[in-house]
Nucleic acid binder design. Structure first.
Lengths: 195, 195
DNA sequence: ATAATAAACAAACGTTCGTTAGGGAAATAT
DNA sequence: ATATTTCCCTAACGAACGTTTGTTTATTAT
């Protein structure tokens, strides 16, 4: 082991854990499992991390911050609601596809966080959803979007995107921008040909 | 215990397991956990079921059959593509909301099925998605739907619906028909006001 | 009343779980 | 050269896991 510093090793652990948590789930992934894939003993993991849950916390809150920051930037821009929605979705998809395994863990395994972390997590998620809801409400006030249940629509929109890591393959031909373009076009304009 | 026959007890086990699998996940739910909620010892469960995985199999394949049958009925009807899409979504939402806990387990925990069951499961799911894809392709041929990536759109549509059990509360005021109406309206007509 | 069946139990099986303790080898700093 | 730190090891801890066994209790059928 020449080139591996402790920081590298820690990141390697988190990366492999991310992959295994996505494939098998957090609860079904054992520390011996994880260590085996890295090529060390389970006990050795604890030279780099404090606990199994710390790994999950790192993954979840890293993703949460990425999503949050990307949306906050867009919020400040002066744009029409439909432009803002499109930009927000592009940004969301970009964060999502930059590490789709971590995203999948973020969306599916957060419930295994212990109580205090869970509280913070849910608060952040709610806050994030509310920012999207506000964009749709603004769009209705501006006369661009029709009357709708904004919360329902946002959850449908985010769900359709967030489920993607389970079938999105990076070797596929769609770029994040194209994915976002497809999704927002359907949500804004619909499938029906406009006559 | 007067009114409980063996069949009732088995159903009770499956029902409670469904609830716990949804809340905690399959791997994080122990047989002692499950037994405790029912009020018996873990060993007693095995008078009624063969294994933990049998419970998951029962839940998953029951739901798979329900979804499949409901769609097959609609496939036979002679309808335009947009009408057929709407009916298919309504039907899908109805099955989903009839037992939203079982649906959540079905969508999130199927990966814990053992290999042979997993194969069957994935084949059924693929088949199901293809039926939806065909509806969108037909709609394009009929001149109703615009050119699009049909598979991508179907996965987005189904994802936006399937994620619902995680936030759908039956005591909410939306009926399955209203939910389906909202979803299909967005997907077919979009959010933008048509001018 | 007696036999048969069903459903629960306590106890234990072997295995795996996350984690800790203590020590040794190799790299780094002094 | 020596001391310190880093990283991994073996060994083991207690707890929890799914499941099996053998037995008791309650219900149902004869």
């Amino acid at each position: 082991m020449i080139t591996k510093t402790k920081l590298n090793r820690k990141q390697q652990i988190i990366d492999k854990a991310t992959q295994l948590f996505q494939q098998q789930g957090y609860a079904a992934t054992s520390m011996r499992d994880l260590a085996g894939y890295i090529g060390i003993e389970a006990a050795s993991l604890y030279s780099h991390i404090k606990s199994k849950e710390e790994i999950l916390q790192t993954i979840c809150f890293q993703m949460a911050n990425d999503f949050f920051q990307s949306l906050e930037k867009i919020e400040l821009e002066k744009l029409s609601a439909d432009e803002k929605l499109k930009k927000a979705v592009i940004s969301h998809v970009q964060v999502l596809t930059k590490d789709s395994a971590a995203s999948a863990v973020f969306f599916s395994e957060w419930r295994h966080l212990s109580d205090s972390y869970l509280k913070d997590f849910l608060a952040m998620r709610n806050n994030y959803e509310n920012k999207f809801i506000q964009i749709l409400i603004d769009g209705h006030k501006e006369g661009t979007f029709k009357k709708m249940d904004a919360k329902f629509t946002v959850l449908a929109l985010l769900s359709s995107i967030n489920w993607m890591p389970s079938w999105y393959k990076p070797e596929g031909k769609l770029t994040p921008e194209e994915i976002a373009e497809n999704v927002t076009d359907v949500f804004i304009n619909g499938l029906k040909i406009r006559s």
